[in-house]
Write a protein that binds this DNA or RNA. Structure first.
Lengths: 335, 335
DNA sequence: AGCATTAGAACAAACGTTTGTTCTAATAAT
DNA sequence: ATTATTAGAACAAACGTTTGTTCTAATGCT
């Protein structure tokens, strides 16, 4: 692809390369380039349709104006939302985002990070897919600004922003219990992820507090399939749960499918509550009560933390858990 | 960020930079580097945790191994799906994807494309947000491999892959008519996009064929809000539509909301059919019949076309419309 | 008039690769 | 023994910027 460079403009205007460079970078005043030269340069730049070569600039300047966003998958609407929001923030700060999807596979995640270093990204926002962190730490130790989003490492002084998943899960479980449920099935997502662990802990803590020790935890993926399978399994047992806590709305969708197949209804036959809000939850046959995460704030804060890190602006605190809330709809039955 | 380069390896091994480069690029045999040298280079590369500097390689080699993906927004699940699928394909071909979201704003789209050129992307897959194409053509004329995905320009010999939206809309409308509907409201999305135009045309053609001339077209955005607003408006009129054709499932969600507010039901009071399938459609209070697009194939084919273009492998045809299909659920009432 | 200052711009090195060319031993051929 | 060949590797230019330094007129000062 033919490109018009700074050099072409220099030739065209009979000015030097450095002069052109300075004008194009807004350093004209600083280097007292005459108004006249400035004008003629800007004009020919427009006329020739000049495009800076970032690779060259990057090489020289040591900055790529590029940020890596690494998430499990865009097909989970929760992450798609986050990605969309944070991409916006990156753009407005003058960065482009390079997308990485780990597909919840640690080897893939490691590979992605490797190529990112090669691409010389200026920062990384990641939702790590497991609890392994050596590869991330290695980058941090090399000085790459990093923030964990949604998923994080508690004891690793890497900035993070996530929801207080423990609390969300605790609240949801309490709600279920308050409504008389004593036999609750929790269908979890990816086992080694922080949110999942926290949700599990919150779930158990709430049960413990109420002296309930009959519960089941099943599942291993934030997918509808997982929700479907585990729900089917649960309903084959003799003692069926009266309520299900799904660790994501995608999982809940699977639950719904299994429940429907059994010709059962929510909440008459089973109560259901799940993590992550979504517009469609309002229109399901039974609108689903859910734990909502403040996605926009998560994205905004993650971006803020990252740029603080990049620009070396000290920050009071860069590890935060945002408050979840519960959106009441109609999927919980009072027993 | 400190980085280990080819130079460090050269110093460490007492071999020359070029030798190291050749080994790292798998050109060892070609340049008859001794087995011994190869081994020692590979080993120290691993030991030092070497990371290629793509910016430098790009500058020299003129290739960035980067592809730009420009879509309206990730918060539309349809595009999120496409993005996820095609990102996969890019990765497996050894490319990274740079993400661009136009937010349906042409100025933004133009800006994005401008910075992409600067970033020296090797290719572009775009779902253009309007019918304006000069900025895209300019890139094509400079030799940038481009393919349009979902949205395209009919007479512009830029490769594209999309669904036959005319047909999809035609089929859907026919279905409605066959079920006795004569007063149909079409709620459209972004007006100047090809899919929207095609859907509109298909809708009208089907009506025409049946000699029906009472119909309404409203709306201007692929959002739930738009669907909500237009549905409300429609129900304020004296002659209410008996069926709605929503140009996206996001729009349909808005319809549903308005319908629910009016204490009406689908399909008893209004029939509803929409574009784009999604798992949650199965679990709505009334499972929605929809026109499904072959997203995976769209992504796969787009990637194929792009790489054919990049690798200059001639292609029989690179402008295709894939077949839509209708997934029957329960949202259409026989009048 | 002579020197110092300044405005305006050019020069040239450097960033980390890739790659065409050249160099140096060692081996093979005569 | 001398020359030709070859294996193995080093040299050096180039990619398009950015930026510290240097250059050249022109102006200001005494």
């Amino acid at each position: 692809m033919k490109k018009v460079g700074i050099k072409d403009i220099a030739r065209e205007t009979n000015l030097s390369i450095s002069t052109v460079s300075r004008v194009m970078n807004g350093k004209a005043e600083e280097f007292r380039i005459s108004k006249q030269s400035q004008e003629i340069i800007l004009e020919t730049a427009k006329r020739l349709d000049y495009n800076a070569n970032y690779a060259a600039a990057n090489l020289r300047y040591g900055k790529s104006n590029t940020i890596a966003l690494v998430i499990p998958t865009l097909s989970n609407p929760f992450f798609a939302r986050l990605a969309s929001e944070i991409n916006d923030d990156f753009i407005t700060e003058g960065y482009s985002t390079i997308l990485g999807e780990s597909g919840e596979k640690i080897e893939l995640e490691e590979n992605i990070l490797k190529t990112l270093v090669s691409r010389d990204v200026d920062g990384l926002v990641i939702a790590p897919c497991t609890d392994s962190f050596e590869h991330i730490l290695r980058l941090r130790d090399r000085g790459l600004p990093i923030v964990c989003m949604d998923r994080y490492f508690k004891n690793l002084n890497i900035p993070y922003v996530s929801t207080d998943n423990y609390k969300g899960s605790y609240m949801a479980t309490k709600l279920l219990i308050e409504n008389g449920h004593k036999d609750i099935l929790a269908i979890q997502g990816v086992k080694k992820s922080t949110p999942n662990n926290q949700r599990l802990a919150g779930f158990k803590a709430a049960l413990m507090e109420e002296g309930i020790d009959t519960f089941t935890v099943a599942g291993n993926d934030f997918t509808a399939q997982n929700g479907y399978l585990e729900t089917r399994l649960a309903f084959q047992k003799v003692s069926k749960p009266t309520a299900i806590l799904a660790f994501s709305n995608t999982i809940a969708l699977g639950c719904l499918k299994a429940i429907k197949e059994k010709k059962l209804n929510v909440p008459e036959d089973v109560s259901l509550i799940c993590f992550d809000d979504h517009p469609y939850l309002d229109f399901l046959s039974t609108p689903l009560t859910c734990i909502v995460q403040p996605e926009t704030e998560i994205a905004k804060l993650s971006a803020r933390f990252l740029f603080a890190n990049i620009n070396k602006t000290p920050l009071e605190s860069d590890q935060v858990l945002l408050e979840p809330s519960i959106k009441m709809r109609d999927s919980i039955k009072k027993l």
